[in-house]
């Protein structure tokens, strides 16, 4: 199994949290974070940060209903079969 030191684990931390690492590297970061008392708090810190961003994403602005209707009308006009 791949083993990471602190520098390697921290440099891959966001890729780990974003689910962008291959399985071997994911496991290496996870293992390092489990056993390293120095790095684990930073994982918690970054997780709290990203949790807050993901939560905020749900409070984002939606498209105005009038725009939605306008696009529906536009597409209907575009998609209408050509007149014969």
């Amino acid at each position: 199994m791949t083993r990471y030191d602190c520098l390697q684990a921290l440099s891959k931390l966001y890729e780990y949290l974003d689910g962008e690492l291959p399985p071997d590297d994911t496991e290496a970061v996870r293992h390092h974070m489990e056993v390293c008392q120095g790095c684990y708090p930073f994982l918690q810190f970054c997780s709290s940060f990203q949790d807050a961003l993901h939560r905020a994403a749900h409070g984002q602005t939606d498209a105005p209903p009038a725009l939605r209707s306008r696009i529906a009308d536009l597409l209907q006009t575009e998609g209408a079969p050509p007149a014969h």
Binding site: P41, S48, A52, R55
Partner: peptide, 13 residues
Amino acid sequence: DPEGQFFAAIVDG
């Protein structure tokens, strides 16, 4: 705040 709990306290806005 070692675990970054303050992030959770900040409102979405």
